[in-house]
Nucleic acid binder design. Structure first.
Length: 118
DNA sequence: ATTGTGACATACG
DNA sequence: CCGTATGCCACAA
């Protein structure tokens, strides 16, 4: 990573760390980074199209709604990917959201993520 | 330096 | 749960 790490990169790293079959919220990522705010995370993911390794479909808002699906191609792609992971989506909302919720600041606490370790 | 923008979160009623 | 209001802050022009 010779490139300068911007806020986007941090969000990408955390998002890529989300296990399959799990989802997280923008606020959870923002809380883990302890930087910016949830809006910054969503804004960063908006540019995640440049990063094919970033499973942005696993990031939803705190209501469990697939708010970013409109940025996928096609929009239904986001729900399709989630269901492929075994997540049930109903009315653009994740069923048992809190059950599938994966909080980096908790589950990733012991992980040796390379945030700045590069 | 200033302004506009945004895939959100929280508080309150 | 719903609607409204306000805070949030990195980045591009």
């Amino acid at each position: 990573m010779a490139d300068k790490h911007t806020y986007f990169d941090w969000v990408y790293e955390v998002t890529k760390s989300i296990p399959a079959g799990r989802v997280t919220s923008y606020g959870a990522i923002a809380d883990y980074l302890a930087l910016g705010s949830a809006r910054m995370v969503g804004w960063a993911l908006n540019q995640a199209h440049s990063q094919p390794d970033v499973p942005a479909h696993r990031v939803v808002n705190h209501k469990g709604e697939l708010t970013g699906r409109n940025h996928f191609t096609p929009p239904s792609r986001m729900q399709e990917l989630l269901e492929r992971e075994g997540i049930v989506v109903e009315n653009n909302r994740i069923k048992e959201f809190e059950t599938h919720l994966w909080i980096p600041s908790v589950h990733l606490a012991d992980l040796d993520i390379d945030l700045g370790a590069d």
